[in-house]
Design a protein around this nucleic acid. Structure first.
Lengths: 335, 335
DNA sequence: ACGTATTGTGCACACGTGTGCGCGTTGGGA
DNA sequence: TCCCAACGCGCACACGTGTGCACAATACGT
């Protein structure tokens, strides 16, 4: 170390002085501090990581960096990282298990202290690969596919979210309903639809009055929503609950293209509460996820995992945000 | 090295064998490869970084992780990183020079090979700090405030973008115009407005027919757009160009709240072409930035800088995307 | 004054990987 | 048979930091 020579001490002393070790006499400490300042010395985190066997780095795997939903989740993660003096290593991975495992591998190569995977597609068959890179891992909004001592999940309560949407629409006295699903995320899609349908059934809505639609896997959500809205043909349906806001926004556009007024002729409910949901036309009623909190909670869980503390999986509660895309069914008016 | 002992060779041989060095006999190479596979050996990138004095890591500083615009830019960065076997170290920094420099410091501590700063607020006074951490740096959509051998800029042509908006609106035979600006980014705001105004003047529009509005620094763009649209009071103005899509979307909502129909009574043009611009109501006519390309170009420029190759600053051209928020002025109808 | 505690600093090693150089072994040519 | 080249591998060091232990110097107690 260059600064050691200039201060005429060993690098040991420099190291200790800069960490404020009291075993170093204060005049020497002062001299070294001044010299470090003057020379613009910045400790090498790589070397430190190697020695300490920890990098103070958290790896994050997202499916799409440009997705505004994950953007807010990552923001929550970053906030906690920042206050912990940790850094964020971000990797995108296409929406399948192979790419996601590949990304996790690359993070492991960099010896991140922990990994957060959002919207994981991993199945039980990946369990042993996951064990192999024994790094604490937290999955956000992913199916819990296997038990593992070093991994936890932080999820939104999808079932409760579906129920929330149903209660809202029931309170507006709708009678025939539709669910616009997403085939790409089988688990959460199922939970949301079941929560929705269960609640409707429990309030006396007949099964035949609940219609479900889905679109091919390979189209984007928003285009899928548009397609479903334009091809939808179930007379009497006056309320539709969409898997997420992207589908709902597409549906709004689709209904508009057909001249079907929202909410007057049909009410639309989304899921997520993206930032833009407030500014769509009409502003979207939607089941809100606490996105930043999702990220922060994941970080706290991961921190506990890293420190070897006991933590459980977390399920966060969604809330209903009512805006203008939903209204009461107009009785006696034919649709 | 554990694998070295099991293979009964030195760690040197293992290292060489795994890089496919031909000086190692092929039976030994095979044996080591098999053993590495079996033991799930993953090389430690930290140790390698220390030895090689390069981390194959790119640091990125963004103002807000949840901003959909930067999300797409970062996506472009990630694509190139990925194909280069590089990783992406992401840091958020509030919208001011101090935080941004702080973030760059932390990236330097981790010895990233290069840094990309988006929407930098750095001024000439920060030049020496920047030189101090002599790391190749590329600024995206930032003012070029000083010359430096190790830094370059990749910018959108803001002036041309303003001109594009003007030409589009002129072709729709509008006569009185407004510009809704953003006070937070003085430089690009100025360029866009000048490009807009210059073009209008060049086509015979009188200065007094061009109105400018701005909102306080501390409100979000979208709320600022809403505020400007609701308080706007310039009779006869039938076309407004907004600094960006966020402001334009806010303006759409604001005009709607006042019962002013877009585009029939007033045409609105944005800037950026966010993903959601297609799905607003009405779908937004806007000056599009090639966001992913911005990120990719920045990476290529940074790569050249790292390799010590000669590169120049880059200015990318925007394009006009016409949707439904603009239409011809209705002649003879009073507004 | 001598032994012992206390204080301040350096030596040497570790972390995991890459590489220049040297050394031993083998093969081939004269 | 001897010499030299070619080949295959290991030694030792480097990268920058942290830390246990030893050692020297000083202070203190008796």
């Amino acid at each position: 170390m260059d600064i050691a020579r200039r201060a005429d001490v060993s690098h040991t002393t420099v190291s200790r002085a800069l960490q404020g070790n009291l075993r170093i006499s204060s005049p020497v400490r002062m001299r070294i501090a001044a010299l470090a300042q003057e020379m613009g010395y910045v400790p090498n985190a790589i070397a430190r990581s190697l020695q300490q066997q920890q990098t103070r780095t958290i790896g994050v795997v997202v499916s799409d960096m440009a997705d505004p939903f994950w953007g807010e989740v990552v923001k929550g993660i970053d906030i906690v990282c920042d206050s912990n003096n940790q850094s964020l290593l971000l990797h995108a991975a296409a929406h399948n298990a192979t790419h996601q495992l590949g990304a996790m591998m690359r993070l492991y190569q960099r010896r991140v202290d922990g990994i957060i995977v959002v919207d994981s597609q991993l199945g039980p068959e990946d369990a042993k690969n996951l064990e192999a890179l024994d790094t604490p891992t937290v999955f956000i909004n992913s199916q819990r596919v296997f038990e593992s001592a070093t991994s936890r999940t932080v999820n939104i309560d999808n079932y409760a979210g579906g129920a929330l949407a149903a209660h809202h629409l029931l309170s507006l006295s709708h009678q025939k309903y539709a669910y616009f699903g997403s085939p790409k995320r089988p688990d959460s899609n199922r939970q949301r639809s079941i929560g929705f349908v269960d609640t409707l059934l429990a309030h006396g809505i007949h099964t035949s009055w609940i219609h479900r639609a889905e679109f091919p896997t390979d189209v984007a959500d928003i285009d899928g929503g548009y397609a479903m809205a334009t091809t939808f043909d179930e007379p009497g349906v006056s309320a539709v609950f969409c898997y997420n806001d992207a589908i709902a926004l597409g549906a709004l556009a689709g209904f508009r293209a057909r001249g079907i007024a929202v909410p007057h002729k049909i009410s639309v409910v989304g899921f997520d509460d993206l930032a833009i949901a407030r500014y769509s036309w009409p502003p979207l009623s939607t089941v809100a996820q606490p996105k930043e909190l999702l990220g922060q909670t994941a970080m706290h869980t991961l921190g506990a995992l890293i420190d070897g503390l006991a933590v459980a999986d977390v399920i966060l509660a969604p809330t209903m945000v009512v805006r203008d895309s939903t209204s009461a069914r107009l009785k006696g008016i034919r649709s």
